[in-house]
Design a protein around this nucleic acid. Structure first.
Lengths: 137, 137
DNA sequence: GTCATTGCAAACGCTTTGCATCTGT
DNA sequence: ACAGATGCAAAGCGTTTGCAATGAC
């Protein structure tokens, strides 16, 4: 059984991972694994789909990439920004707004503490219909 | 092409749908389609899996059932009337506490509104180390 | 009688995995 | 050289769909 405190194996600096990171850096928003794979292919970077998935997994575990679940069960990824924040995502077009909520952070910490839980983090996502999609419906 | 404003076809009161509603009523929390299907089978109610999915879809569209996306891309369903809550999960033993946070609900609604988003729902999970796991470490 | 609903099985889309090969370090 | 990384193809999973049969109204 792996020691929870020991760091994971070091990530190797391969052409594929570099290409993936570059692609992730190229956009602010969330991209699905399939989108990223397609983009890499279009750029002539030959990368297997499985590799994209495995690399993204590794990056998420390493804390370098953020992930959320899109509508159809797809996962979307993006580089972690420095600051802890949440997202308000349009469930139709995917347009995303970054949210920070000190109040919620405090609330979460307090609730956890009240129940005796320690070392707590949380995930919070808002899903709705953005003004544009709402208008065009 | 169906008129978006005209009401959907009337839902027929079939044995299968009745059984499904009964099963949904039997619990407060969210259940996945697969869980519901298994539960019905165990009760001797013969219902096809596709029927469960189609009925749930219809019920969601009819506004009688709420749905959220679980972790593995599965969808979970519950009757609309039951109460909305979140979970505080121990990342080691999985022990879970149900959390309700009116303040957070209000906060989420307001934030979404401020950005012009409508028809908003959210997902919120807290992860930490429960008292027991923390002691045994 | 009509038309929504059902069941089955096949199809789907996204993701994961087994395994042989390759490549950073 | 060794351990991690890769590619391919096949498997896995939850979900959806085509079609003929059934049942509610």
């Amino acid at each position: 059984m792996p020691d929870a405190t020991s760091p994971a194996a070091p990530l190797r600096n391969t052409r594929q991972r570099r290409a993936l990171m570059a692609e992730l850096s190229a956009t602010d928003g969330f991209r699905t694994a399939q989108e990223l794979h397609a983009a890499l292919r279009e750029q002539g970077e030959s990368v297997g789909l499985a590799t994209v998935y495995r690399s993204l997994q590794a990056l998420v575990e390493a804390g370098e990439v953020d992930t959320v679940k899109a509508d159809g069960g797809e996962s979307a990824f993006r580089l972690c920004s420095s600051q802890h924040h949440h997202h308000l995502v349009c469930r139709q077009c995917g347009r995303t707004v970054e949210i920070t909520g000190p109040a919620v952070e405090r609330w979460a910490a307090k609730v956890a503490e009240d129940h005796g839980y320690v070392d707590v983090n949380h995930t919070l996502e808002l899903f709705g219909l953005c003004p544009e999609c709402r208008a065009s419906q």
